[in-house]
């Protein structure tokens, strides 16, 4: 473990708390893509299947449990508790276009052609693009509640912080993980536009609004 990865993981935790807080205080999941949240459940379940057969550490164990449980809880909030506040007509990204290529790529580019290994690879590729329905929705509506932008910023910071973590590991350890690195770079790249508006508007106290 190094500082970058720890901060990345904490940022990931924070993003989830911000999202749950947003839904519960505004009593609404307006502006949140159900599809993106459903993709995250898929990502976590596929990746953390290794909970059943591989022990890493107490930290690793509890984080995995937390990510699975909290993502399922968010789906529950959106699907049942605050269902009327979700508008499917603006959440229309075709997730097949993300899941399909992630399946195909994971069958071609993986470290080992084994079931759980391919599931892990699939989860990495899917996570890289899982934010797209959310960003697409943001683009469509052209605006976002400030708390929602904090959620997205924390989520983007999580992947961004993994990059110095990989650089650090490259120099201090003998192992590199090119699949995670390439997918992580793509994932962080998707946030660049968002970060630009976040830094130039939201952090200056303005509302998140995209130019018409």
């Amino acid at each position: 473990m190094n500082l970058f990865r720890l901060l990345g993981d904490l940022s990931h935790l924070a993003s989830i708390f911000i999202l749950i807080h947003k839904i519960q205080t505004t009593r609404s999941c307006r502006g949140i893509s159900f599809q993106t949240q459903a993709l995250y459940v898929t990502v976590f379940v596929a990746r953390y299947i290794d909970l059943f057969f591989r022990w890493i550490s107490l930290y690793n164990f509890f984080m995995k449990i937390f990510f699975i449980a909290s993502s399922v809880y968010i789906l529950y909030l959106m699907k049942y508790r605050y269902r009327p506040t979700h508008d499917p007509s603006i959440d229309t990204f075709k997730v097949e276009y993300l899941v399909g290529p992630a399946v195909v790529l994971s069958l071609i580019f993986n470290y080992k052609f084994e079931f759980t290994e391919i599931l892990w690879t699939f989860s990495i590729y899917l996570e890289a693009v899982a934010i797209l329905p959310q960003l697409f929705m943001l683009q469509r509506t052209g605006e976002a509640e400030t708390i929602t932008t904090h959620y997205l910023a924390a989520l983007g910071a999580y992947r961004a912080l993994y990059i110095p973590n990989w650089i650090y590991r490259y120099f201090t350890e003998d192992v590199v993980d090119p699949i995670a690195i390439v997918a992580g770079l793509v994932q962080t790249g998707l946030y660049l536009d968002f970060f630009y508006v976040y830094f130039t508007k939201v952090l200056q106290g303005q509302k998140f609004e995209l130019p018409a």
């Binding site: 993981d9 890493i56 984080m63 990510f67 470290y111 003998d174 192992v175 590199v176 993980d177 995670a180």
Partner: peptide, 10 residues
Amino acid sequence: EKAERAKDEL
């Protein structure tokens, strides 16, 4: 270096 999955990462 060898290319391998970093199993301890989340």
